[in-house]
Design a protein around this nucleic acid. Structure first.
Length: 352
DNA sequence: AATCGTGTCAACCGCGGGACA
DNA sequence: GTGTCCCGCGGTTGACACGAT
């Protein structure tokens, strides 16, 4: 402890709190393309006003492609209870036995539902002599709301990133037991690589030959003036990066690893990112689409009406504006039909 | 309809451990 | 052998949603 630890984001003026869709997409797009060989350097390279820690957390707990979203199944809960009996609060170890679940999620589920349930169950056993098996007979009386993650047969827990509003109704999963959702490859008409086009060039790793199968459309770090989605460039005072650089290694320049983020290895197998499966052509297609579904990007088009607002302000720095003012937010919130979405996005440039 | 209380969960914080120079 | 850096873990918090009154 206290080994000259770097100040966290709060101390150097970086963003904190909830992630905006823009930030999410930026992070997704970046990791999708370059992986995350160095969390600390990632925000800078991706043009994110976040600390590496925050990016890592967001990725691990929310954006990772292999996350199993939705309610815990009865089996998972059973496993969790058993493992907790055995391991205690070793959430990461428990998470290792529950594929697709994060330690954070497991911790939350335990603290909010299972702990009470187990306690209640234990109390009941005491009362009744405790001879009953611990089969999940207490589910019904668990003091949880119907939409709680533990009630696997009810409404799915959602993990929308579109702010915290309206998230409970967006992404219902009918089959929480499914480990992997098989999603047919669909041409979205939207390439995540276009997001990377907006990564500030100076912050871009100099990768000469992106190997991302999804990068067919555009080379990295080239701002396309032809109407590709322009995420707002972040107006970051140079001092901020200086601070971070100073915190990093003092060079301020990309290190070797930063220069060549593990494209081939990306997203860095064995690094806690199980996204390695996504490095294959199919895998990338799969998880991006899966993520889009989870984020509510798929759905009816009726409500999707983007109205460019010239006075719209960037949602990246500062409070996110209403979705109608922000195509990216709109993209996340409205569940646009792919073509329409792409069309809308390509028509729009977000200005600071 | 408004207010209050509770539950949920994403995100933050601080620390420890391992890797590396 | 030592110091530094980064990653990951576990505990905690704050904002939000929703149900009850």
């Amino acid at each position: 402890m206290g080994k000259g630890r770097a100040p966290c984001c709060a101390k150097v003026g970086l963003n904190k709190g909830s992630w905006t869709p823009e930030e999410d997409m930026r992070l997704i797009a970046y990791i999708h393309k370059y992986g995350h060989p160095n969390w600390r350097a990632l925000p800078k390279q991706a043009g994110l006003l976040r600390c590496g820690k925050s990016c890592r957390l967001r990725w691990i707990n929310y954006l990772r492609p292999d996350l199993k979203r939705g309610n815990f199944t009865a089996e998972e809960e059973e496993t969790l209870i058993k493992l907790h009996n055995k391991l205690g609060n070793k959430w990461s170890k428990i998470a290792a036995s529950l594929p697709g679940r994060t330690d954070n999620e497991i911790k939350n589920v335990w603290n909010t539902h299972l702990k009470k349930r187990v306690a209640a169950s234990a109390g009941e056993q005491k009362k009744t002599g405790g001879a009953k098996s611990k089969k999940k007979t207490t589910r019904v009386d668990a003091p949880v709301k119907s939409a709680s993650p533990s009630s696997s047969t009810t409404t799915a827990t959602t993990h929308s990133s579109s702010g915290d509003s309206g998230e409970k109704s967006n992404t219902n999963k009918e089959e929480p037991e499914v480990d992997r959702i098989e999603i047919p490859v669909v041409d979205l008409g939207f390439d995540f690589d276009m997001l990377l086009d907006t990564v500030p060039e100076t912050h871009c790793p100099s990768v000469s030959a992106p190997t991302s199968p999804c990068s067919s459309a555009s080379p990295p770090c080239v701002v396309d003036d032809n109407g590709l989605l322009d995420l707002p460039e972040i107006d970051i005072v140079p001092e901020l990066w200086s601070i971070m650089d100073g915190v990093d290694d003092g060079t301020g320049a990309c290190t070797e690893t930063e220069q060549a983020p593990c494209i081939n290895a990306a997203p860095c197998p064995g690094n806690g990112t199980e996204a390695s499966a996504a490095t294959t052509d199919d895998g990338q297609e799969w998880w991006l689409e899966d993520l889009e579904r989870e984020l509510g990007l798929w759905g009816p088009i009726e409500d999707y009406q983007y109205q460019p607002n010239p006075q719209a302000q960037s949602g990246l720095v500062g409070p996110p504006s209403a979705s109608v003012d922000n195509p990216v937010t709109c993209y996340f919130e409205a569940g646009p039909e792919p073509d329409a979405c792409a069309a809308a996005l390509t028509d729009i440039q977000i200005d600071l």
